[in-house]
Amino acid sequence: MQTALLIEQLLNGLQFGVMLFLMAAGLTLVFGVMGLINLAHGSLYMVGAFACAAVAAATGSFWLGLIASLAAAAAAGAIVEMTVIRRLYERDHLDQVLATFALILIFSEGMRWLFGSFPLYLNIPSLLSGSVPLPGGSQYPLYRLAIIGVGVAVAVFLWLLISRTRLGMRIRAGEADREMIGALGVDIRSLYTIIFALGAALAGLAGALVGALQSVQVGMGEPVLILAFVVIVIGGIGSIKGALIGAVLVGVVDTMGRFLLPRAMELVLDASRANTVGAAIASMLIYVLMALILAVRPRGLFVANA
């Protein structure tokens, strides 16, 4: 029974990590190519979740909702890029932080205006509502496995996109020397818009997928955003590979910490104290992990643009 529980928690950690990867990939891409720190990325995650919940409620189809989440988040990303973000590339990080912080306020209040303060709920599609037997006799929800599958597919897609296509070549060139590719005749403004919209779509997809596991509400993007920051700091800002490995590391360490630490504490403390102390330490664990990694490698595990 214990091993089954352990495997289940490991899978939960993996699923959490994959979801973080969807968020972190966009953040790290935007930072790597445009040098922009975008706090409003969590808002795009929220937009995706709301779009999915609203369309799924109206049409009864989760899949249409999923498409809507991609489209809405990409559109929101493109609009924000063209109206606000574009003016920030040449500014220092302080201005970027502040302007995107302002965008969070606008997005959150705007969503509350449109959808009200009550959380929306999104049902898992019937196709994926079953569960799969695990070794050891327990069952694992199919939907969570599907999220892991989506994450792996996105990772492969991004890898192919960046290493095998013309757009990917331009993205890599943009990371290396943005003035030069502009001089070579690449329309850098629309390239930036496309990259930003791509990152936004991934965030929206993550929001929609997670929306079926939790409730869809204003402010849902913020805790995830901060974890995504931890992920890209650990992985090395600008590196997609770093984002993938960092995300899985954070997802697994966080989930396993919450699962194992209270149990480990029981060896030295009585049960109720072990639970509270264990939970308190577990909630700090990934930040400790981040501090340790940065103490050894101040620029993260995989340094991009070295």
Binding site: F31, I37, H93, V97, I226, F229, V230, I232, V233, I237, T276, A279, A280, A282, S283, M284, Y287, V288, M290, A291, L294, P298, R299, G300
Partner: peptide, 20 residues
């Protein structure tokens, strides 16, 4: 950016500690 994010993360660490 690293500095911005790390200070943010440490503050979150203390925040979650206070909550739990």
């Amino acid at each position: 950016v690293y500095f911005i994010m790390i200070t943010l993360a440490f503050a979150q660490m203390i925040y979650y500690f206070a909550i739990s």
